[in-house]
Design a protein around this nucleic acid. Sequence first.
DNA 1: ATTTTTCTTGAATTCCAATTCAAGAAAAAT
DNA 2: ATTTTTCTTGAATTGGAATTCAAGAAAAAT
Lengths: 186, 186
Amino acid sequence: MGRQREFDPEDAIAQAVNVFWERGYTEASVQDLCKSMDINPGSLYATFGAKQDVFRAAIKHYLSVVTHEGIGRLGSADSGLEGVKAYFDYIVEGILTGKRCNGCFGTNSFMEVSETDPEIKALMTEHFRLLENAFDQALQRDGFSETQGKASFLGCVAQGLNVLARTEPERATLERIVSNALLVLK
Amino acid sequence: MGRQREFDPEDAIAQAVNVFWERGYTEASVQDLCKSMDINPGSLYATFGAKQDVFRAAIKHYLSVVTHEGIGRLGSADSGLEGVKAYFDYIVEGILTGKRCNGCFGTNSFMEVSETDPEIKALMTEHFRLLENAFDQALQRDGFSETQGKASFLGCVAQGLNVLARTEPERATLERIVSNALLVLK
DNA sequence: ATTTTTCTTGAATTCCAATTCAAGAAAAAT
DNA sequence: ATTTTTCTTGAATTGGAATTCAAGAAAAAT
């Protein structure tokens, strides 16, 4: 077997998510990553491959967390509409109080590298589809009509919020956006 | 006086916009810029300063064009609502047939560098405000209520479209998003 | 105990793109 | 015409960040 790893790769990737989230792909140096992951370059390259591979692993890790924490709410509420509200609450609260003050790590990354990293582009496009489907099913559950179109619309609003997140918006602004968006479901 | 410039700085910046738009700030090399601007590094640095300065000039150039071509439609239509429709048409058509298949250069840039370039962040935040104000005035013109909130909402949808632009969306998807967004104005 | 395997360390290396600069060329001033 | 000023050219330089690697350390196998 030989010597065993002194760190947990998944914990390390969770740290990498924070670094990439705060600085973006390009601005995050391998040194930054090593410091936060608490490992040396040699270990990083031996375990994960190149910087780009660390980034891809970070995106995958992030998407699985968001899929549980965020999209999960869409299905587990008392009604579809409650689920939609719960999802937007999650986004808005994240922007105002949490790490989402820097926007959505997925959306940020998609905007930064989708032209140079087809894998990231594919992962994020798939995630957008996943979110839309979750909206769609939530609306179907409540018996809405034209659920597909409304789901696309809600997905668009969510991405808009992720952009505006980086303008340091006020709570009132975000809440009015969401309440206007929800008017469509009437 | 001495020797005179062999190129027009504004034309050169217009070319720089294309390069940065296609490749993003980081991926666009000074070499790429020089080739498209049809000048050499020495001339570039002497005229505009560093790469970052070229980028800022490109953003300013782009914003002034968009303010005329896009936001201009909001005020010059027969009614506020027609203006709003004309604006979204401009965005959607740009995504489907024009350079906006790569998204909005402003939004892309904002997402890429807002954490590392405060000037770009400020320019774009101001532009978002400008767009929102234009929506606001268009709605006021038609006698809508709560125009401020609706304007923020429309601004959010516009940014969402700019994100989705990079997923190679279908026309039907974009049009349904817009028509759903316009339902709020009823 | 010794050997083998695998991990860790962090300095050295490599690579690449931004920037500079010295030499040549054009326009104006004297 | 000569000098001065400013622009152009593109090769050379610089600087910084990604990546490699040789030496040391821990765990297991023999």
